[in-house]
Amino acid sequence: MISEADVEHVANLARLALSAEEKRRFAAQLGAILGYMQQLGSVPTADVEPTSHVLDLVNVFRDDTVQRTLTLAEALANAPETAHHYFVVPRVVE
């Protein structure tokens, strides 16, 4: 069972503002889906190594060479607000 308080806690971690209606709905739906996921508990996995991805690649490096990258203007072009070549955000510290 997932309570609305659980939903609020997770929504805060995920930085999502939810309406009262969404909290009610997600509590019910997440409860049902997580309940379904609990079937995995019945599979014995004590000695099984976890897989995070399927490739055998580790520490992929490339040569440290100069290449064309985005220009400042391109990098800022989609930003909601910019000033003096920076992204602008609302006040963070009082």
Binding site: D6, L16, I33
Partner: peptide
Amino acid sequence: KRRIMLGTY
């Protein structure tokens, strides 16, 4: 939103 919530949980 549902998937972000599930994943975060």
